[in-house]
Simulated assay, not measured.
Amino acid sequence: MKSSRAIVTVSVLSAILGATAYAATDVQEKREEMREEQRDVREKQKEMRKEANEQMQDVSRATKIIGTDVKNMKGEDLGDIKDLVLNPMRGNVVYVVVSYGGLLGMGDKLFAIPWSALRWSADQDYYVLNMDKEALKNAPGFDEDHWPVSTTQWDEQRKQLNQFYRVKP
């Protein structure tokens, strides 16, 4: 009788240990499946962002551009796009107006940056300006109350801005 009990006990313990080992293997397999699914989702998201970025380069609504961050090549914040300056005769964007500095929107300096000086970031949701933060602080700019208001004023600034940002007119 004792040997039967021992055999039953050993059998039960073996079954429990076997089930535990099977469950542990099953859990490991499930974890690996989940990791693989997560990698697939991240890859799909990356592809979708890349596609959206490419579409943003071709055609974009002004409301999608205004408010977008601008960063330098190091990923440092250079401000955000406050407005677009258009050439109505040609029908294209000439400048983006970037706001930088100040505190809580007060005292910001505005910069008219040639549209061609900006590049849409490859994997992110911002524009890239190849410029150091300190250089931007010294860039020609204006305040909210003193926008260039005439074609003549914009033309006067155009040479200076194109030279500063190293772009061809």
Results as ranks from 00 to 15, higher is better:
E47D: 03
P148L: 02
L118G: 05
L103M: 06
P140D: 00
R39N: 09
K71S: 08
T25I: 08
S14A: 15
K159T: 15
N72A: 11
L118R: 03
A135G: 01
L13M: 14
V12Q: 00
T20K: 04
L136D: 10
K46R: 14
K74E: 14
M56K: 05
A19T: 14
V27C: 01
M73H: 05
L136N: 06
Y165D: 05
Y22W: 15
G105T: 07
M131E: 05
I113S: 09
S4A: 06
V12N: 00
V97A: 08
I113C: 11
T25G: 13
Q163Y: 06
V98H: 02
V149N: 06
S150C: 02
N92E: 13
I7K: 15
K30L: 01
V27T: 05
I16S: 05
V8W: 13
T9Q: 13
Q157P: 00
P169V: 03
R35Q: 12
L136T: 07
L161G: 02
G141V: 02
L78I: 10
S116K: 14
F164E: 07
A19C: 10
M34T: 12
D145F: 09
K133W: 01
R119N: 11
S4R: 08
K64Y: 01
I16A: 11
F164R: 04
V12G: 00
D83E: 10
V128N: 09
G79K: 07
M131T: 04
V167F: 05
K74Q: 15
Q124V: 02
G79S: 09
V94Q: 07
D80F: 07
T68Q: 05
R5S: 03
Y127H: 07
Y127A: 10
F164L: 07
Q38H: 06
K50D: 03
Q157F: 04
R49F: 03
E36R: 10
S99I: 03
T9C: 13
E54F: 01
K74D: 15
D58A: 14
G105S: 07
F111S: 04
G91P: 05
Q160D: 11
V59C: 00
A62M: 07
V98K: 08
G79Q: 08
L84T: 03
D155L: 15
D40N: 11
E32I: 02
P88E: 11
S3G: 00
M73V: 10
Q160A: 12
V97E: 13
R42K: 09
S60Y: 02
N92I: 12
A139I: 00
A21I: 06
L118A: 03
F142Q: 08
V97W: 08
Q38L: 10
V41Q: 08
S150R: 00
A6S: 07
P88N: 08
Y126D: 15
Q57H: 03
T151G: 02
E29W: 09
I66A: 05
W115D: 04
D26I: 02
T20D: 01
L161Q: 04
D77F: 06
N130D: 14
G102K: 01
D58Y: 04
V59D: 01
S121G: 06
E134A: 02
L17N: 11
I7L: 15
T152I: 09
V94K: 10
Q157N: 13
I65C: 04
D143K: 12
N53R: 09
E29H: 08
E144H: 05
S121F: 02
L110S: 01
A15M: 14
L84I: 12
D143G: 06
R166C: 02
V94W: 00
L161A: 03
N87P: 10
I7V: 12
S121H: 13
